[in-house]
Each structure stands twice: as structure tokens, then as C-alpha cells.
Write a protein that binds this DNA or RNA. Sequence first.
DNA 1: AATCCACAGGAAGCCCGGGAAC
DNA 2: GTTCCCGGGCTTCCTGTGGATT
Length: 417
Amino acid sequence: MLETKQIFKNREYLRPSYTPDELPHRDEQIHQLARILAAPLRGETPSNIFLYGKPGTGKTATVRYVAKELERVSDRAPLKVKVVYLNCEIVNTQYRILATISDVFLRNLEDTRGEKFLKSAGLPRRVPMTGWPTDEVYHSFFRALDEDRQLAVVILDEIDKLVQRSGDEILYLLTRMNLDLKNAKVAVVGISNDTNFMEYLDPRVRSSLSEEEIVFPAYNALQLKDILEKRAKISFMDGVIGNGVIQLCAAHAAREHGDARRALDMLRVAGELAERDGAELVTVEHVRRAYEKIEQDKMVEIIRTLPTQSKLVLYSVVLLAERTPRRIVSGDVYEVYQDLCHQIGLDVLTRRRISDLISELDMLGIINAQVINRGRHGRTKEIKLNIHPTQARAAIHEDYSIGSLETLILPSQSLRT
DNA sequence: AATCCACAGGAAGCCCGGGAAC
DNA sequence: GTTCCCGGGCTTCCTGTGGATT
């Protein structure tokens, strides 16, 4: 292993968690965001901002970048800036959001004024992660914040997830705080890739959250290429990227709504494949395989989360695909399915229902089902498997209610001609 | 030309679990 | 704690389809 040539310099730079020092093709968004967030430094009331755009268009990276710069610059400004970044997919209740934010400011206060000060002001050192009434948490946050002349930038990433789960009450609270605060100010930055999500909001919240809106358009192939090249330079060894590799990654990702995250993923996986091969060069062939691998992984994930009945239908198709040269039609699938149900002891669903399940599998892209007329032999759906049988097996296998697939036998009678 | 196969897929309604309202 | 309502999974019943077969 030591003798094989190294491909990566540092692959961490290709992971989605990494925030780069420069963001190509996002100058406009960076400026807009910076301009809006810097306004309070000159004494103006901050505006709340709403960012939206498809996944992988650099929303999170841009916000984090601007936030970092802002905090740095604000040392010299009359107003301190403190940024709190929250991913609402993870921190997804009102309470936990408030608790997390107040924790930041309480800690801050303790650092600058000491523990004694907190005690004399009647403020707690920490907010427990559970247990308090929500309004008490809110008040400790409010007071801790208002102790200083400062600007709190609260970034709520994937804000649609929050509203879905816990409603928009917290947004109402946060966006109205400026009316009551004497010294400090709050700016809320909401990030979402669901553009329609605004419609579920209370009109008051909607108007205050979207005082400013910044749209992140999808990257086109050229821009993606640019981004990939910059990243490749720092993450790969010199000269290991073959001809056309980056273009191909960019082209693939551009077709899928310009998702830069996917493009970087593909490049990384291609590199890993090359590394495993002991190759000296990452080639377009590696990219092709990386693309396939990513697609397959996605499928496996989908299969894993399928309901048991659907898995069984899919497994019937897998068995037929493996064991018979004939074309697979819905009738055969149903027979095999019935038999498997009996073996496992699962309820047998009706033909009609299975017909729907097959259509669902088709929609998910796991299989291809096409309606054909076979004349005297009636009307059917002809089914083709869109994934490796072995991989499908592996994903289905994990369902404990199906049990060990090896013990299941394909009855010969359902294979009759 | 008539028939017929073997399903597709629409319509209506049942049942059940879970959340909101009382 | 009870009641109400809703949505999703499912069944029953049904009509439609179009080319191979008669």
C-alpha cells in the first residue's frame, strides 16, 4: 500500500462539510448578504433575510462564509456581531432552538463579565436541554442578549423542516424581538430549498422574514467545472486528474439541477475508485463508475426504506430476473409474491394493490414497468429490474420481518411455461 | 369480423392509527 | 379521557384495452 502512488492530497476538501475560503460564482450573493447584514453596524435596524435555491447551490457555504467574515470585522465596529448557526433538521423544536441560542449568549456573558455577574443579574449559567417552560428560556435569552450592544445573527438552515414539525411560532418570536430590545438587535436568516414553503407561514411572519430575499440559481456546467477545478487543486496530488474527468463530473451534475455537492461527491468517489485500483491517474472511466456507484447507493437507500410488502414484490421480481430467461410480467410476479407471502406468513394483498405497488416501484426508478398488449394473452406490464440483483437482495435482506432470504424457495410451479 | 385473454387502472368504500378538539 | 376527523393502505367491483386467435 505504501508503494502505490498517492492520489489524494487531502480528500476532506471534497466533502460537503468543508467550507471553502472562496466561493466562485457566488460574488453577487455574497455581496448582497454582506450588505444587508452589515447595515446594523452603521446603526440601522437589521433586516431579516430569506435565502432559497436548489440543493447544492452554495447557500449554506455562502452564509457561513459571510458570517465568519462579519464576526471577524465586527471587532473594530461599534456593534459586536455574534452568529448562531442552527440546522433545523437536527435542532428542530422551538425549545431546543431557544435553548441553544440562549446558551451561546449566556456563555458569552460569562466569558466577558464573569460568573458573578450572571448570578447578580439573576441569570442562569446554562439552560438545561429539557425541562424549563419555553417562555422562561426565551426570557433568559432575551436578557442575556440585551446586556450588550450587539447583533445576533440567527441562521436557520433547512427552515422548512422546522416549520413542518413545530410551526412558525418561534419565527414570530424571533422576528419581533427587535421591537422590545433596547441595546441589541436580532437578524434572522432563513435558508430553504423549498420555495413554496413560505405559503404555510403566518402572513405576519412571512412578510418580516422575507424583508430581503436572495435567490441562489443552479450552477451551470461551466461554473461547476470551475468549482471542481479549484477544489481538485487542493485535494488531489498534482497531475493525477486525467483528461475530461472534471468536465464529465460537471456535466453529470449540471444535468441534475446543478448540484455542486453531487459534483464534488462524484469527483471524490472517482478518486477513491482510482486509488483502490492502484491507478496513477483518475480517468473518465473512474468517473463513469463513480456515477454508477452513487446511483446504486441511492437506490439501495430507497429500497431499505420501502415497506415490507413492497420489498417482497421487488424480491419477487429479483427472483424471476435471476431464475428465468423469460420476460417478467405482472401475473408471474403476483404468483411468486403470493408464494413468498405464504412462506413468510405475511398477509397476501390483492392483485389490484400489487398493481399499485409495482407502479410505485416504477416511479421510484427501481424497476421499469411498461404496459404491453399481448393479444390473445391479454394485457400486462412488462417489468425490467433497474438495479443489480445482488444489491437489491442485500437491501431487502435487512428487513427482519422478511427473515433469511436464503431459506425462501422459488416454487417451480410459478415458473411453468 | 368476432371473440377473448389477462391484466390495467378508475371509483367507492372499509378500516385503522394518530393527532386535534372537546 | 373521549370523540371526531383525516389520510393512507387496502379491498371490491368495475370497465376498458387491443392484438392473437378463432
